[in-house]
Design a binder for these strands. Sequence first.
DNA 1: CTTTTTGCAAACCCTTTGCAAGACA
DNA 2: TGTCTTGCAAAGGGTTTGCAAAAAG
Lengths: 144, 144
Amino acid sequence: MTPKLKTATRNTQQRQVIKECIRKLSHPTADDVWHCVTDKLPNVNKTTIYRNLSRMVEDGALKRFMTENGVMLFDSTPERHYHLHCERCGRVFDVEPTLSDQIAEIVQREKQFLITGQKLILSGICAACQASAPAGNKKATTQT
Amino acid sequence: MTPKLKTATRNTQQRQVIKECIRKLSHPTADDVWHCVTDKLPNVNKTTIYRNLSRMVEDGALKRFMTENGVMLFDSTPERHYHLHCERCGRVFDVEPTLSDQIAEIVQREKQFLITGQKLILSGICAACQASAPAGNKKATTQT
DNA sequence: CTTTTTGCAAACCCTTTGCAAGACA
DNA sequence: TGTCTTGCAAAGGGTTTGCAAAAAG
């Protein structure tokens, strides 16, 4: 296979704002990023968001994963950590690396399965939702 | 909210064959089920497959989850267990309930997060693929 | 006969692609 | 300038919906 030499990268306005948004959002959908970006740069197309996010994933600057409803979320936290996805309120919580490691270790030891970081999502009901009565369902955005 | 009274259920030919296929396949996609069904009943529409699978999920006869590529898989194993999804060969492996319980326990203890069964999928590279060289990518079907 | 199901076609949603025009370096 | 990026429109792929015709009980 051809070595795939890397091409130059340009610092467009769009790209800059996208990066800012990535920094301030946590576990955003492409759509979340788009809303954030258009606050500052009103005419950015969603395609541009997708292309930039994909590029960042390729470059390893971002990770991405799929929720149970088939929407992808992006994550810029570099260390390996897992996610808890609350099915009631839609929020995504991080599991600290230490705890993640315990889990990864169990699986790797028992199943000889190599877990590639940041791809574990546990779905269920978060502590807050367990406490409160059956609540309304928010958007899938964060909270760590 | 209205109590939602349940309506009668009919035992169509299609439904019977779909159930058979569910029994013999493990972690199938809707498309897998469709292929299996049309072997026996050539003219079944994919919509019928979807509708029946969704219904079974509602009735609790089936669980379903999403892979990283946004395709849903169905699972008829009743006890709680988790899945290992190999990113290289696409196969899905079960994690026995005992091991799953260890993991669930850690998360529940440390994060007060209530895991609702069968929604944990660990992505990575399976033992076989680690052993062999970078292989071709099969379809996401099973192996336990 | 009445009500559930089916098949078909079209709608949906999110994500990706093709291409010409525009922006960076 | 040269080529990386963008915007727009259209294509894709899996899943869902609307509706009239067919089947189950």
